[in-house]
Write a protein that binds this DNA or RNA. Structure first.
Length: 212
DNA sequence: TGAAGGATTTGT
DNA sequence: CAAATCCTTCAC
């Protein structure tokens, strides 16, 4: 049994629930900016990071893995909101998505970059010249948080290998006061569906995986 | 059954 | 700009 952390009321209110994620990915993706992805390991170790860059994928979207048909790889995308859809890309990197919208509507948000609260001790700081870019990019993010295919289909819930927490009040106030702003633009690395502006990031954040 | 290519990253 | 590297998809 993995170590359990007692859930107090402060904590419970912060957990992102499935209903909140059961909306179109294009609505959820910008809302996830500023939310915190928490990774919990079997020994209880927690690594937290603020989401600073996302991309939405959905039905009628030629860039979506499930655009053509349901398959063994993409079937998690058809599941209920709140599952983790993880896939292997270019034979060497993993990417993590949050499944959104209603069941049977293939839809997910790719988490492209985190601003980490603390750098995990297993990260080679010699190699990572800039600590704040340790989780900049979907592949590096999964490498840093030790996320691979074994976690595909996991529910994002308190006590699980990962869960989501809502924005802090301070973060939300900074949005309200326009101290923090978002940029919406086109997605990265696609051959189809390039024209859809379904990528969002925190303007000027140094952990955003790519500018331009 | 085989070939092409990918929601990436790194180093030349 | 090309390599690394493996799984999925699609064509034959």
């Amino acid at each position: 049994m993995p170590a359990q952390i007692p859930m107090n009321s402060t904590h419970a209110n912060r957990i992102v629930d499935h209903l909140w994620l059961a909306r179109p990915s294009t609505e959820v993706a910008p809302d996830l900016l500023g939310c915190i992805l928490v990774r919990q390991f079997p020994d209880g170790t927690l690594i937290k990071g603020t989401i600073v860059e996302t991309e939405a994928y959905g039905p009628e979207d030629p860039a979506c893995h499930a655009y053509r048909r349901r398959s063994k790889r993409n079937e998690i995308m058809f599941g209920p909101a709140g599952l983790a859809y993880i896939y292997l890309i270019y034979g060497m990197y993993h990417c993590i998505n949050i499944v959104t919208d209603q069941e049977n509507i293939p839809s997910a948000v790719l988490i492209r970059a985190l601003q980490l609260e603390t750098i995990p001790p297993w990260v080679d700081l010699q190699k990572n010249r800039k600590p704040h870019r340790t989780a900049a990019g979907p592949g590096k993010l999964c490498k840093t948080l030790l996320i691979d295919l074994s976690l595909n289909g996991t529910k994002l819930d308190y006590g699980q290998p990962f869960w989501l927490e809502h924005r802090t009040n301070e973060f939300q106030q900074n949005i309200n006061n326009k101290i923090i702003t978002f940029t919406q633009t086109t997605r990265i690395g696609l051959s189809q569906g390039k024209e859809f502006p379904w990528r969002w990031y925190i303007t000027g954040d140094p952990a955003v995986s790519q500018f331009g």
